[in-house]
């Protein structure tokens, strides 16, 4: 044992200083690489923030540094997903959450528009079928909204 009995504990009134971690800075470099690649007509980049060893406060600091841009979108598919452009155009944040509001994944997507915002070809094909049915049923009939789980 490490002599726990010999520790004199002193209760202090003032809150301890916030600790400065700087694990957020390397991510900015990775973002910069991705953005440079995108600007040269290259592939979009996806960074999964889940897999990185953040210390307490690192994620908040990173999001604060990235800031907010002009676009914010709310998606409702299997729970809410919020997408917003950061203060750096081309750098988007995709925050997937479940129906209870708990986070499933947080991605940085470096693209002209995140993939999840695009309408998917399967859904478009499905929409065509339903629109045909709607037109056939008569122009006045109300459109039933697509059912989501």
């Amino acid at each position: 044992m490490s002599g726990l009995n010999g520790i004199g504990l002193v209760v202090e009134d003032h809150p301890s200083q916030p600790i400065e971690w700087d694990n957020a800075l390397p991510i900015l470099h990775e973002i910069r690489h991705g953005l440079h690649r995108l600007s040269g007509g290259g592939e979009p980049t996806l960074i999964d923030l889940h897999a990185l060893p953040f210390g307490p406060g690192d994620e908040e600091r990173l999001l604060e540094l990235l800031g907010r841009g002009e676009v914010e979108a709310d998606i409702d598919a299997l729970g809410p997903t919020r997408v917003w452009e950061t203060a750096f155009p081309g750098v988007w944040l995709v925050d997937h959450r479940n129906a209870q509001g708990e986070r499933l994944a947080l991605h940085i997507e470096i693209a002209s528009v995140p993939e999840i915002l695009r309408s998917q070809s399967e859904d478009i094909a499905d929409a065509l079928t339903r629109l045909d049915a709607c037109i056939a049923a008569g122009a006045g009939a109300p459109n039933p909204p697509p059912t989501n789980a």
């Binding site: 598919a77 070809s121 399967e122």
Partner: peptide
Amino acid sequence: EHGVSRRGFLKFCAATAS
């Protein structure tokens, strides 16, 4: 069948990959 859109399915796959 459950009415999950392709977009929802993609979200599921992104979360699964993570």
